[in-house]
Design a protein around this nucleic acid. Structure first.
Length: 218
DNA sequence: ATCCCGAGGG
DNA sequence: CCCTCTGGAT
């Protein structure tokens, strides 16, 4: 499904209309991952890779009760962490990464979550997407993280035809005001999760349909 | 490009 | 059954 030819000014106008519709539909869009601290948000975000936020939220209360901060988690072994996160999937890798991550936070960052993207991305299990989400949600540092949902919606809305998440993110950031970047990320995720779903998108009730070249009838 | 991995939906 | 879910490391 190719996108119609469109000038930049035309695309910017469409982006503005999409932003307004998103603000109307999701006035308080933010992460749905349960957390009390930046550390817990970082852990929850690492766990959310290729998993539903629901499964993560069912696991983290017990996990955080047992390992509330980086110091506690740094003293654990992956085998001790695995039972808490087994149902999430990819649990062996994630357990190993989380313990190593906590140890690095203690050793190199005083047990705190660093506020620089490069430092975050050096942590095990933390890539560009996770780092961008944590900076935005925990510290309000602007950025449009691109996950499976944002990538799908950017493609369907013809806001970007790029392939790599980083390029899609950069293109989206060029279309929306910086103060709305974090909101746009969370709103697109929510819209992707509940309306513009991967398999049977609910175009009939979609508030973005008037601005969507990919909308389907019926 | 491939592996890690469980759970829910269609 | 197959696809998808807020990816990252090798």
């Amino acid at each position: 499904m190719a996108c119609p030819k469109e000038g930049l000014e035309e695309k910017r106008k469409r982006a503005r209309a999409i932003l307004e519709a998103l603000k109307e539909a999701y006035p308080k869009a933010r992460t749905e991952l349960r957390h009390e601290t930046p550390f817990q948000l970082l852990v929850a975000t690492v766990l959310s890779a290729q998993a539903t936020d629901r499964s993560v939220n069912e696991a983290t209360p017990a996990l955080f009760a047992r390992f509330p901060d980086a110091k506690a988690l740094a003293e654990a072994t992956p085998e001790e962490v695995e039972p808490f996160i087994r149902r999430i999937g990819l649990y062996k890798t994630k357990a190993k990464n989380l313990v190593a991550l906590a140890q690095r936070l203690v050793a190199e960052h005083g047990g705190e979550v660093p506020r620089e993207k490069a430092a975050l991305m050096r942590l095990p299990g933390v890539g560009w997407k996770t780092a961008t989400v944590v900076l935005g949600a925990a510290f309000g540092i602007p950025g449009i993280a691109v996950d499976t949902h944002v990538a799908r919606l950017a493609r369907r809305l013809c806001l970007s035809e790029a392939k790599s998440p980083e390029k899609i993110g950069a293109e989206l950031e060029g279309l929306f005001p910086k103060e709305d970047w974090v909101f746009v990320h969370h709103a697109l995720v929510l819209h992707g999760r509940y309306v513009c779903t991967a398999r049977k998108p609910k175009c009939a009730t979609c508030v973005l349909a008037p601005h969507c070249p990919s909308r389907q009838e019926g």
